[in-house]
Nucleic acid binder design. Structure first.
Lengths: 347, 347
DNA sequence: TCCGTCGTGTAGAACGATTTACGTAAAACG
DNA sequence: CGTTTTACGTAAATCGTTCTACACGACGGA
């Protein structure tokens, strides 16, 4: 009659006793480590399922891995992230790894705090999605844990992996499409960020500038920036659309912003695309809605997420050299850039 | 010359040695437990900041709390959840608790797996947002950890807290508004779910039915259901809008669906609200866009999230009795239900 | 026959916190 | 003044794993 709690937790020790083997043997089976016979493995597996044993992740984290991956998103409002998460989930479906999300609120301070919080919790690896922090901070994080960065272009060689679409190409595709449709004064509407050089917005700007020059529209190059907040965006867009001369087309760095631009255009009584053409980026599901019908760049968030998760697991398992994946974007044309009477105003 | 790793981790022991006190004393300061003098606290705090010590969450989780709260969302596409998360983040800002998200993919199996994964990781409490699992499963979860359920109405007394808006009232507000504008055949467009009785969709249906009857429109009552997937929604809506007689108004259980309905209506060449009025629920940020201009019900996701987090922390700290918070929804009228020439077709 | 080596399994020391049980000195009490 | 209480600290056990070091028998080559 030892004074034991009746509903004690099923631990690795319980399993070991039940299977008639040592604790270490059970641990080996769990991690499918080297040095267990098939007979022993079967015995232990049987006990595990019979007892309904689940490994205590916190205890695991003390010595080995926690089998938890941290994903940091800038915010939850951009539906593009849903696609990426779907990809990550799909990639980890059959593995032991569990992704958990943190929201960085588009703030460097919050992001850094979140990284620390995740590392305190012994996460085995991190996926940073469009981080707002500087490249050397990311490098420091990568020293502490396996890291994959998405939607963020490093400037030099790095010790972490990256997954991106070719943002310069995406921007070029847009400019080429618009130029082909006869639009000349094309504005690039970007985001006001602190550490610009590695952000996707900047790379899209590079592509925009290059393509404009190539198309002989160099003198129309114009980049406008605004804060992310809807109010800032709207006032900026209103200025833009009420200015003289009015731009013929606006290329927004992400769909989310383009929807705001569509809204302001409509409020001002402007017709899209006859008075002004509008393009987004990311090809989120809202682009397809008839009231938006937004031409956009598809970069397959699902694929991006899948690859990022794959790279991270590889790296956790020991890969040392950095990999930098770039996927090719694709233009999806919708009504927001195609004039009803498609006359090319070719002069 | 003990053979120590040079860059060893700063542990509670390091801090204790540095401050010249015992390990337990430091632990007490960390948890601000009873029985530490102000002098000792100050000494320890100084050491902590000097050494840059951060508690190892996995180790904490072994015996005490992990200071981690799990939040489970059905998906990442509904922008309403962003508001809720903002509220949760705000409430936990100044506390030690760190919220981490999991995505349930609107699937009971995935949700249950996620709950287990979170409990394996010793999370101190769970917030379930619009769970798709049965009420008794939720009850079982609540036995294992403090739990707060949002957007889900329990049928009887429970051992977990809930936070909801008054969904019946919200639906009533919509019907009253539409009836007041002269619409008579108002369809409720709901979601096809397995365990209906406790879902918000069902409560909105109850409100809809009651209000229709009260408004003398009982014979127009009509509830249509579809799967969540865009394709299913669109075909169902197309059927609805091409049927004879065409409904005069469609009340969608959430904004997200209403946007699809707006899209289909436009594709069919129907004018909103002259040919058909459309209403949503949640008042997500996209409602405000001119191309949507969607009348909706505001239930302040931010406030809901804030309260949920507050309740959860309270419960972790020891509260036993369940609390059920209900906040009052508010109708936000936009162009999707207001005819340009507002003639009441009063017969 | 002797001596590695290999394959399998075990005992026990970590990991870094919390928590229990217990000292010890100072303050309060009769 | 002796005793109890209170306040503050401490040592050591504990949580559930992983991992290192080693034991043991079988096998194979010299």
């Amino acid at each position: 009659m030892a004074p034991r709690k009746p509903s004690a937790r099923v631990t690795i020790r319980t399993v070991a006793a039940d299977a008639g083997v040592s604790v270490a043997a059970v641990s080996k089976v769990l991690r499918n480590a080297y040095g267990v016979s098939e007979a022993l493995r079967a015995k232990v597996q049987a006990s595990i399922t019979r007892l309904g044993y689940r490994p205590h992740a916190a205890a695991r984290g003390m010595r080995g891995q926690s089998y938890t991956l941290g994903v940091i998103l800038p915010d939850l409002t951009n539906p593009f992230f849903a696609d990426i998460m779907a990809g990550i989930d799909a990639a980890l479906e059959r593995t032991e790894y569990q992704p958990l999300l943190g929201v960085g609120q588009s703030s460097p301070a919050v992001e850094l705090e979140l990284v620390d919080a995740m590392l305190d919790r012994q996460m085995d690896g991190l996926i940073l999605l469009g981080p707002r922090i500087t490249i050397d901070r990311i490098a420091a994080i990568a020293e502490r844990a396996p890291t994959v960065v998405m939607a963020h272009h490093p400037v030099g060689p790095t010790r972490f992996d990256t997954v991106n679409d070719d943002d310069q190409l995406g921007a070029r595709l847009i400019v080429q499409h618009l130029a082909g449709m006869g639009y000349r004064s094309i504005v690039y509407f970007s985001q006001d960020l602190q550490f610009n050089e590695s952000q996707v917005t900047y790379h899209r700007e590079l592509g925009y500038r290059a393509a404009m020059t190539e198309a002989g529209l160099g003198r129309y190059i114009s980049v406008v920036m605004a804060e992310q907040a809807p109010r800032e965006v709207r006032t900026m867009v209103r200025q833009l659309l009420q200015g003289r001369p009015r731009p013929e087309a606006i290329f927004c760095w992400t769909d989310f912003i383009a929807f705001e631009v569509l809204s302001v255009a409509r409020e001002l009584g402007l017709s899209v695309p006859d008075d002004v053409a509008i393009v987004g980026y990311d090809n989120t599901r809202y682009c397809d809605l008839a009231q938006n019908a937004l031409t956009s760049i598809d970069q397959s968030g699902q694929l991006l997420g899948l690859q990022a998760a794959r790279l991270l697991v590889e790296r956790i398992k020991g890969r040392e050299e950095a990999e930098h994946l770039v996927i090719t974007p694709r233009l999806v044309v919708r009504a927001s850039t195609v004039r009803k009477n498609a006359v090319l105003t070719g002069n």
